[in-house]
């Protein structure tokens, strides 16, 4: 599925070198549900960005489904992102002037395909998430939970093999949070991989593996209670 082989990310800042990600090796397969925990500034966003083919590492290789994503061109990498990786953002990141339907269609629209097919697929997902009566609404006309469901539908519309979730339940009520988790679990059950960054212990407990990252160093974790999820993440 996806593997990081001695991936590092360094920045130069005021003459000093900052190690955002230290030599990291990670293998994920279809069906893996991985939670990543760690304090602020520990490198979580760097890890997600590298996994998401958005940030070129300073060293190492990232291979997704046999493709070394940072050894191909920018356009091809964007296409890989579009077809094989899905993102779920904490603030949903819906396009504010598009309707729910148009937001969900958006990833398909970037690379063509017939309008009927796009529309059909998007409507199917919105119906699955119970939003069939909200297809023409803009994000400002939806609740937080509804917006996150639209975002989830958008994530899944291209049938990605890898989903990267950035605090997907951070702004949600419990019912909506449960729905997101259920969706991610279903996704995992479809033999797809999920990497989830979270501060929520309940969410991390849903994961099969927990990775801890601190000062750019990634470690496989033990039980959730051992890493004090609820307390030391700032």
């Amino acid at each position: 599925m996806i593997s990081l082989d001695q991936v590092e990310k360094r920045y130069e800042q005021g003459g000093a070198v900052v190690h955002a990600l230290r030599s990291t090796t990670l293998d994920l397969r279809g069906g893996d549900f991985v939670a990543v925990v760690g304090p602020s500034g520990s490198g979580k966003s760097t890890l997600l960005s590298v996994l998401g083919a958005m940030l070129n590492p300073s060293a190492g290789r990232v291979v997704l489904d046999g493709t070394s994503v940072y050894e191909i061109g920018v356009a091809e990498r964007a296409r890989v992102r579009n077809e094989r990786i899905g993102f779920v953002f904490q603030n949903f990141n819906l396009v504010p002037w598009m309707t729910a339907l148009e937001n969900v269609e958006l990833p398909l629209r970037l690379y063509g395909g017939s309008r009927a097919e796009r529309r059909g697929r998007a409507l199917e997902l919105l119906e699955h998430f119970g939003l069939a009566d909200r297809v023409g609404h803009r994000p400002s006309e939806l609740s937080a939970g509804q917006q996150q469901r639209v975002a989830l539908a958008r994530t899944l519309v291209t049938r990605p093999t890898l989903v990267l979730a950035d605090e997907p339940t951070g702004n949600l009520d419990p019912a909506s949070r449960n729905l997101v988790l259920q969706t991610l679990t279903d996704f995992r059950d479809d033999d797809r991989a999920i990497v989830l960054v979270t501060h929520d212990p309940a969410v991390s407990r849903a994961a099969d593996r927990i990775l801890t990252i601190s000062d750019g160093l990634l470690e496989e974790s033990k039980a959730a209670s051992e890493i004090g999820l609820a307390s030391d993440v700032a």
Partner: peptide, 16 residues
Amino acid sequence: RRELGTLMALGATPST
């Protein structure tokens, strides 16, 4: 910025 960043995250190329 955020919208355009999201588009890129969803697969839009810089040239797009």
